[in-house]
Design a protein around this nucleic acid. Structure first.
Lengths: 213, 213
DNA sequence: TTACCGTTCGATCGCTCGCTCGAAAACACA
DNA sequence: TGTGTTTTCGAGCGAGCGATCGAACGGTAA
């Protein structure tokens, strides 16, 4: 009981430190300090640094997937499914920013069994999303390249958010999800069809620093 | 002359090693070995490991931006501009996969002046893209949240590619760019409007491992 | 040949890393 | 109180890190 609580707090500290410094650069000493214990004490709760990264990643996908299944239960309209998928993603994202940043950015550092298990649960998440996109496209072939590309484009849109999102400046999960859903369903909109050649001033250069590359 | 050639080959080796192992995990000894020289010899061409990362990132954006400006010259149709932007991005991406992976994944590790300079050139790239999206949206306000979100969604789509692209399996730059342009302009298509509740089998689970998180 | 200079390297520095150990502290229950 | 278990830690291991230094190499011009 006490152990479980302490372990979760260790995971949270690890997520924070890994998110801030990057998995490689973050030292086990940083994590220990953040968790308020000694290095040796930290190792009472994990076998290795990599296991910490694994735990953060796996736990994140686990919660994300369970929440998704719960929210999608009984919903049959593909457009609604899409919206729910995106909302669910962003809500988890905004609640556990650090963990999601680690998942998005550092999961690839895992090796062996850790890698295999995270890859597997990631794949479940991907496939659930692909099912939705398949319905949207009216695509009969699950192996279709277009289905793959489109699904991965959607993942790009929503996963990239961790590189630029700023609480306060940007909308909340719901608003962001609405915008992205609309964009994915209908594109930038009918205005796109005009083809006028007017130039636009380059004001508004403030605060575009992140997320561009 | 000889120096320049050697330096570029060092950059290329650095990009490869950083892409494969990650910047932090990659040691200066790995880079030296890949470049075919000793550690001390490598330091004749750079002042620090971080300077190597900076050089890779900055050089990439430099080439990308110059190529973009060249391609956009004289084009006034926003839709055509968008297509050119995406094609340019993917063509560079597929030609210099390693460098682009480093740029996308590791540029955030830079600090101080290195960070400032890469952030600045990244911002130029972002703003050029934002201009195009602004035309497409018919958006008068350059500070509009919608403009920001939409532009960054586009960046997400095209930047995420490095996590899943596989030569051979996936389309070439042109094909990929056509698909993404179409998706960004018009969404998943009119089929999306039906709202039918039909279920879809979960075949096609092979090879979805990457890019999902 | 000699002198020069851009280039390369072996050896090594000081430091931090992930991780471990045996002992002690904190706790639970008698 | 004493006893056994769970949790914590100071000290330190070997390895690898980024970076440096003075010496030596190799081509060129006199």
């Amino acid at each position: 009981m006490r152990y479980e609580e302490r372990f979760e707090s260790v995971l949270k500290s690890a997520a924070t430190v890994f998110a801030r410094r990057g998995y490689q650069r973050a030292s086990i000493r940083d994590v220990a300090k953040a968790a308020g214990m000694s290095v040796a004490g930290l190792y009472y709760y994990c076998k290795s640094k990599e296991e910490l990264l694994f735990a953060v990643c796996y736990h994140s996908f686990d919660v994300l997937l369970q929440s998704l299944h719960r929210s999608l239960k009984g919903v049959s309209d593909p457009k609604e499914q899409l919206h729910i998928f995106i909302v669910n993603h962003f809500e988890y994202f905004l609640t556990y920013v650090e963990a999601m940043k680690v998942v998005s950015h550092e999961a690839g550092m895992l090796t062996g069994e850790f890698d295999a298990r995270v890859t597997e649960i990631k794949r479940q998440y991907y496939l659930r999303c692909q099912q939705i996109v398949q319905l949207l496209l009216g695509e009969p072939d699950a192996e279709s390249p277009r289905l793959r590309t489109t699904t991965l484009a959607l993942f790009g849109m929503i996963n990239w958010v961790y590189t630029w999102y700023r609480p306060g400046r940007d909308e909340d999960a719901k608003g962001l999800a609405d915008g992205m859903t609309e964009l994915f369903l209908h594109g930038v909109g009918p205005q796109a069809a005009v083809g006028n050649g007017q130039e636009v001033g380059n004001d508004g250069e403030r605060e575009a620093r992140r997320g561009a590359g």
